[in-house]
Amino acid sequence: MTDTPQRPLRVLAAMSGGVDSAVAAARAAEAGHEVTGVHLALSANPQSFRTGARGCCTIEDSRDARRAADVIGIPFYVWDLADRFKEDVVDDFVAEYEAGRTPNPCLRCNEKIKFAALLDKALALGFDAVCTGHYAKVVLREDGSRELHRASDMAKDQSYVLGVLDERQLAHALFPLGDTVTTKEEIRAEAARRGLAVAKKPDSHDICFIADGDTQGFLAKRLGRAEGDIVDESGAKLGTHEGAYGFTIGQRKGLRIGTPAADGKPRYVLDISPVDNTVTVGPAAALDVTGLTAIRPRWCGTAPSGPGSYTAQLRAHGDETPVTAELVDGTLHVTFAEPVRGVAPGQAVVLYDGTRVVGSATIASTVRATSAV
């Protein structure tokens, strides 16, 4: 059954300044909970205005969140978590790219900020739960344990970025939008009916702390430019780059290789070596992956024992693929039923049993169908 608390709770609603979190806070208040809104100030130097639909956590966003709280009729505060966000999310993001991996900062933010730093502070202040505008469901089982499930609307499901939550965190999480099978337009219409000015505000996209969307430029400012070689699978030099951190596994565009492939087909990034600052490119078929190992597993409940059959999701908006998986000495070993492409170390693999999220782990290595180098 879906987790619908029988008694009013003291709820801390994380309000980003967007429409989803505003409607979630309004629904929690309408359900009879004692709701307090909080906006997380995550940037040490917030811009006055976002650039179109990019970025978040700006002064404009905090003001939008405050106005929404006023309309809902709930208390509102701004909490400064900029130092914690920089250390746990931004610095981690830069370090992962420097090491040749492709991180997902949204997962890290959910794990370290919204359901660790924020939740811990909320519980210390006597709140029962943290409410967010994520599209996912917490299901209460008859034995009292909780499970994380996909949202009713698969098109908006965000359970992938919540796969880092453990059972304790799920026990204090509310996702009022998760049971809703509606379009985003209907959520906006609901916001308008409630008198929330954010009804027409564009969604934020890309990485919230890179407002202009230029990830390579952001990394270059922090890591410096370091010229290296772009080579093919045989090791032949095809071109140069200004930093291996500017590439991701499976990337096709922006390679700036003047020499065409012998077969005339596009080439993709196959490997990134931070040790010698080399980027290896090759044909799409060389991206096929048959398995992977993943570290730092986090389970949404009891850890699975022995090998099992699941589906896996490898990116926030990716498709599911059938797998077998087994935890061996703290490392998750995953084998795909059919080869998949574009799997990069640093990404998260999230396992599902039907709609239930089993857990998440960070990809450490992959097994290629054919050798990449």
Score class of each variant (00 low, 15 high):
Leu162Cys: 13
Leu162Lys: 07
Gly163Lys: 03
Val164Pro: 00
Leu165Pro: 07
Leu165Arg: 00
Asp166Met: 06
Asp166Pro: 03
Asp166His: 07
Glu167His: 01
Glu167Ala: 10
Arg168Met: 10
Gln169Lys: 07
Gln169Glu: 13
Gln169Leu: 06
Gln169Met: 08
Leu170Ile: 09
Leu170Phe: 09
His172Pro: 00
His172Gly: 02
His172Asn: 05
Leu174Ile: 00
Phe175Glu: 04
Phe175Val: 04
Phe175Leu: 13
Pro176Met: 02
Pro176Phe: 04
Leu177Ala: 02
Gly178Trp: 00
Asp179Ile: 00
Thr180Arg: 04
Val181Glu: 01
Thr182Lys: 02
Thr183Gln: 02
Thr183Leu: 01
Lys184Trp: 05
Lys184Asp: 01
Lys184His: 06
Lys184Ile: 00
Glu185Met: 06
Glu185Lys: 11
Glu186Tyr: 07
Glu186Met: 10
Ile187Arg: 03
Ile187Lys: 03
Ala189Ser: 07
Glu190Thr: 12
Glu190Ile: 02
Ala191Lys: 01
Ala192Thr: 03
Ala192Cys: 06
Arg193Pro: 00
Arg193Ser: 09
Arg193Lys: 12
Leu196Val: 12
Val198Tyr: 03
Ala199Asp: 06
Ala199Arg: 03
Lys200Gln: 14
Lys200Tyr: 08
Lys201Tyr: 06
Pro202Glu: 09
Pro202Leu: 03
Pro202Cys: 05
Asp203Glu: 14
Asp203Thr: 01
Ser204Thr: 11
Ser204Leu: 03
Ser204His: 09
His205Ala: 08
His205Tyr: 05
Asp206Asn: 13
Asp206Cys: 07
Asp206Lys: 05
Ile207Pro: 02
Phe209Pro: 04
Phe209His: 10
Ile210Glu: 00
Ala211Arg: 01
Ala211Phe: 01
Gly213Val: 08
Asp214Gly: 12
Asp214Glu: 08
Gln216Asp: 11
Gln216Asn: 09
Phe218Lys: 12
Leu219Arg: 02
Leu219Ile: 08
Lys221Trp: 01
Arg222Tyr: 04
Arg222Met: 08
Arg222Leu: 09
Leu223Cys: 11
Gly224Ala: 14
Arg225Ser: 13
Arg225Cys: 06
Ala226Cys: 15
Ala226His: 15
Ala226Pro: 11
Glu227Cys: 05
Glu227His: 07
Gly228His: 04
Gly228Asp: 14
Asp229Lys: 10
Ile230Val: 14
Val231Asn: 15
Val231Asp: 15
Asp232Ala: 07
Asp232Gln: 09
Asp232Leu: 05
Glu233Val: 14
Glu233Lys: 14
Glu233His: 10
Ser234Pro: 12
Ser234His: 10
Ser234Ala: 10
Gly235Leu: 08
Gly235Ile: 08
Gly235Gln: 07
Ala236Gly: 09
Lys237Tyr: 01
Lys237Val: 14
Lys237Pro: 00
Gly239Lys: 11
Gly239Cys: 09
Gly239Ala: 12
Gly239Pro: 11
Thr240Leu: 15
His241Asn: 10
Glu242Asn: 13
Glu242Ser: 15
Gly243His: 08
Gly243Ile: 11
Gly243Ser: 07
Ala244Val: 13
Ala244Tyr: 15
Ala244Pro: 12
Gly246Ile: 11
Gly246Asn: 06
Gly246Pro: 15
Phe247Lys: 00
Phe247Glu: 00
Phe247Cys: 01
Thr248Ile: 11
Ile249Asp: 08
Ile249Thr: 11
